[in-house]
Design a protein around this nucleic acid. Structure first.
Lengths: 399, 399
DNA sequence: GTAGTTTGTATATCCACTGAACTTATTCAC
DNA sequence: GTGAATAAGTTCAGTGGATATACAAACTAC
């Protein structure tokens, strides 16, 4: 009954525009039209017309030509700054934020308001975020930029098909429909996503091209809950409803302590922030860097607790790697700062428990993008949609 | 540096041919050219030329027109029988086989030779299989069929990029390069794959369209080892090297018994065939149906052991579902027959341990294709490649 | 200044899909 | 039977987009 859509002539244009846009934006150094022709296999003529359209639409810019060697100097192309931008929004346990990023990856404008939101009213908080977001949008639009889309990151189970938040245990929210409460301008495409998943996407696009994560990795974000995101060849693997990556509820020991989710022995009860803060006698709302400092300077008892956490984390990661055959694990959230403490136990677990480890060891590293990564990830996701389908923007620029 | 290839004019043809071929082959009832135009969105003119080429190439056939209602009767189109075929080969612990399947899904010819191959010589066994396969190929080609490709299924860790078998514990094989040993005709595209993964693909394509598995599921195959395959929207998720799905080495209890892989408490030690046969005092080489009968008729002690296995299986599946957000689990291998015994404990585990279960319960069912599924899966995989890119076959038919 | 080299643009051509008109084959009404 | 109505499939001029080739532009090197 159903099937993939037909390929019209226009599909060629769409695909080739996307290919060119992506090549320029993902390139470590500016490419010329000739470079693009060489690396995409298109003719120089084709590339020229495509580039002209992308420049016209404000997605790319021509840099001043620099002569080097014989022959006519090439015109280097680069993503356009401050023309088309993406908006990332986030409500998390200890802050509220919005960030606008442009195609160069630069942060154009942002706000981050610290303060615990545990147990806050979903309606009030989202209305407040909406107010701040509308201000941010107004500022950015008054500077002549066009906003491609908005993504709201929430620390919980989000149904990506319906944009409904099912439950966010650490906020105390459940069954919320966030987008109407934000009251974003009509016509601005907006979606809701899980915080860890958007943070993972920031690792792909949110930093200079040369420092980017490899295109396939498992991102593990430690907070009160433990979220994970599976990224395969640059694509987030969300699962049927976007509920993939619930690493925090992998079973470490079925006879273990009871978890808030109703099951027993979940990873969260061994390696969640709640356990870590208790080990050094701190409160749950302590800042990540304080917690990291205290754990790093702690005595043997607390060190043992970190080792337990690391072993549990390693076991859960080994399960994930055995299932998914992924060879890179990036640690985010609190874990980023704890990599020196955690890595030995984690890698030991991975070495012994991953079936393929003798042939291809698993790499464990801190996530390169750390500061409010989900904001960047959300903004970048909107921009990736533009890059993946620049046609509407060209039509808009022409008409 | 790299990027997706350019979209040439020919790409349109390629894509539209694939769309048409797939629509006809996956349709529950024969479609006419007009039906195809309606469901793909192409014009009738376009569909006509594409269909003509596919018929010419021997991928589709026109059935006799049946009049029903006013108007010119439609010409129903169906996959062509016995024109282009795929070859599946398999070496497993207790048999050796080859199967040829055509585009209608019918088995055209096959051989299955029972007998334990545990501890056999890889070289001798693969040479023997190669001999049998060449006979099969000769028979099929003498009947005028063209073989699109061959897939060899092996019960072990196969590197799908290099077609190397790293290790097959239950055969006692390691570091084998199987394809040269088979000595298949030069020019026949051949690859090696994991047995459970190819069996999973058979669930998608190896049975009448109406009985097919949903396009997203986790296939769990119980044998001496426990293999799994992740299928997302009709695509096998193989991971970086094709080593995904090692469910058998998910940790059930870190303090559990030592496993052959070197780790402790792996699922295999709770729910593998080795444990099950021991429970009812049988040998490891017993046929699956005998084992199922004995377990079904067993006393309380053995029943308790099956329950333990089911709980462990359920726990591992819950881990997988939490990670992947998949809502269907198909049980293959020995487990197919044990579904009545296993399901209660499995579903109980899934209900309590899967975070999303309250909103979307996980369905556990026996795999619809059971008999030597990996053979069918291997053959079908070759055919899917033809359907996904029919162009070369059209060129061959024309030239 | 001239030759050599590379980049980017212009023009004719080709290929595949579109749309509208046309042919073919059936049902139904009389 | 005959003819209108209906739906399937085909034909053919038209269009969009990529290609290939030739050419203009801008630089280095001698």
């Amino acid at each position: 009954m159903t099937s993939t859509g037909p390929a019209r002539q226009a599909s060629l244009r769409e695909r080739n525009l996307a290919t060119i846009a992506r090549a320029v934006i993902d390139a470590p150094d500016p490419l010329s039209r000739a470079d693009l022709a060489a690396c995409t296999g298109m003719t120089r003529a084709t590339v020229s017309t495509l580039v002209d359209q992308l420049v016209e639409a404000g997605l790319l810019t021509e840099l001043p030509a620099v002569a080097s060697g014989p022959g006519r100097p090439a015109v280097p192309l680069a993503p356009a700054a401050r023309t088309v931008v993406g908006l990332g929004l986030e409500v998390n346990v200890d802050y509220l934020g919005g960030r606008v990023v442009d195609l160069t990856g630069a942060i154009v404008d942002e706000f981050v308001i610290a303060g615990t939101l545990r147990g806050s009213s979903a309606t009030a908080t989202l209305r407040r975020l909406g107010h701040l977001a509308r201000d941010l949008i107004a500022r950015v639009e008054s500077r002549g930029m066009r906003i491609a889309g908005a993504h709201l990151a929430l620390p919980g189970l989000v149904d990506t098909r319906t944009n409904l938040l099912r439950i966010a245990p650490n906020l105390g929210w459940s069954d919320v429909e966030p987008l109407p409460l934000l009251g974003l301008p009509a016509g601005l495409p907006a979606t809701v996503g899980n915080e860890a998943k958007l943070a993972a996407l920031a690792q792909l696009w949110g930093c200079p091209v040369t420092e980017r994560a490899s295109r396939t990795f498992l991102y593990v974000s430690g907070d009160v809950g433990i979220g994970a995101a599976i990224v395969i060849d640059g694509e987030l693997f969300g699962g049927r409803r976007g509920w993939s990556g619930e690493l925090g509820h992998i079973t470490i020991d079925p006879a273990g302590p009871r978890c808030g989710c109703g099951a027993t022995g979940c990873l969260e009860r061994y390696a969640g922030k709640e356990v870590l803060v208790t080990d050094v006698g701190l409160g749950i709302d302590v800042a990540d860097d304080v917690l990291v400092d205290r754990l790093s300077a702690a005595d043997d008892a607390a060190r043992a607790a970190v080792t337990t956490a690391g072993a549990a984390l390693g076991q859960a990661m080994a399960d994930a790697v055995n299932l998914l055959d992924i060879d890179t694990v990036l640690l985010g959230g609190v874990y980023t700062g704890l990599v020196p403490l955690l890595r030995p136990t984690i890698t030991e677990q991975l070495r012994t428990r991953v079936l393929g480890a003798p042939w291809a060891p698993v790499d464990v590293a801190p996530a390169p993008v750390a500061n409010h990564a989900a904001l960047t990830g959300g903004a970048a996701t909107s921009l990736r949609a533009v890059v993946a389908d620049p046609m509407p923007w060209i039509a808009a620029a022409a008409g």
